[in-house]
Design a protein around this nucleic acid. Sequence first.
DNA 1: TGCAGAATTAAACGTATGACTAATTTGGCC
DNA 2: GGCCAAATTAGTCATACGTTTAATTCTGCA
Lengths: 190, 190
Amino acid sequence: MAKAGRRPGQTETREQILASARALFAEQGYEGATIRGIAADAGVNPALIHHFFGSKDKVFAASLAIPVDPSVIVSTVATGPRDAAGERLVRIFLTIWGNPDARRPFLALLRSVTSNEAAARMMRQFLRLAIIDRIGPELGVSELRMTAVGTQLMGLAMMRYILQVEPMASADDEEIVAMIAPVIQHHFDA
Amino acid sequence: MAKAGRRPGQTETREQILASARALFAEQGYEGATIRGIAADAGVNPALIHHFFGSKDKVFAASLAIPVDPSVIVSTVATGPRDAAGERLVRIFLTIWGNPDARRPFLALLRSVTSNEAAARMMRQFLRLAIIDRIGPELGVSELRMTAVGTQLMGLAMMRYILQVEPMASADDEEIVAMIAPVIQHHFDA
DNA sequence: TGCAGAATTAAACGTATGACTAATTTGGCC
DNA sequence: GGCCAAATTAGTCATACGTTTAATTCTGCA
């Protein structure tokens, strides 16, 4: 998978830098995180990051690979009883956000959307690929309706994981499903 | 209203600084906006901002006065036919976001929530005062349900005004009301 | 073993920022 | 007109940042 001839040490350090970048961008957003901070966290010299990636923007982009295949979301939601599609979508959402590794890139994106145009673009693109553009036609739901579904999930992420408003932040997953799934189902059936 | 004895020039310049601060914080968030940028926009020396306000944090706080009385939201939603409370809430939301002056502080808050703890606190507090803590008891809706209402509105703000995802961003207000009001009403009636 | 190239580092540069200091201007008031 | 406090400015400081350069260490291979 890695380019042939690459020495083992390189990929390891590279991966470590990316891991630190993922963590810090997720915690502090694009502007808040610094090359020096990432380097310190990874235990390397700041210049090494430029050696590998070239610029902060490129580290950011490289660290942002969303570990979720939009197609999986689309097919999971589209497959099965249609009157439970809303519940399936909410459960996927909660599964992703319940996994720290999977959640991290989304946290980073949400925290960077205002200061980094690339982040905003990637967020919009993911919403399109995973929610709006493909689930909609699959279920016969209008584009505008699907953006409404997006608002619901986006708001959930903001309230529960960024702002951490109680009691939403500590609520049980099943409570969230019970509250939100019917709303999304309503959009699907409208 | 202003402190007695203050010379007219002072309040004027002070107001102008606050106006520029409001605009720039709304456009670029807390970290993105700079004292120098605000000073340039207001046509004054950067040191004057410190003279009046003391620090960037304090300019930010002073510029963030939300021009919306939470009580008005609460009473507007609570007054009138109960089965149209959801629609009333959505219409207040759209009225606020449709007015550039009223929208500005919320844009600034949303864009600063990740980099400024004061912004996060103020956002949470407004959600509590305007939505969760007082409309809930008034309509007999649980706190958790009311945070779900909050997610819907927060997501709407993010998708429509920050990320500007189409066709949500350009949709007519009435289309938004038609789609979102029933969802909020559903929470009220659950 | 010695060489070549990659990995890694130390050190510095240029810039932008928030903040501070001291000086200057302004405008009302006796 | 002269005085005084407030408004306003020019200039500077220290810091943090992304980035660059040049030197140094490491490692696989001939």
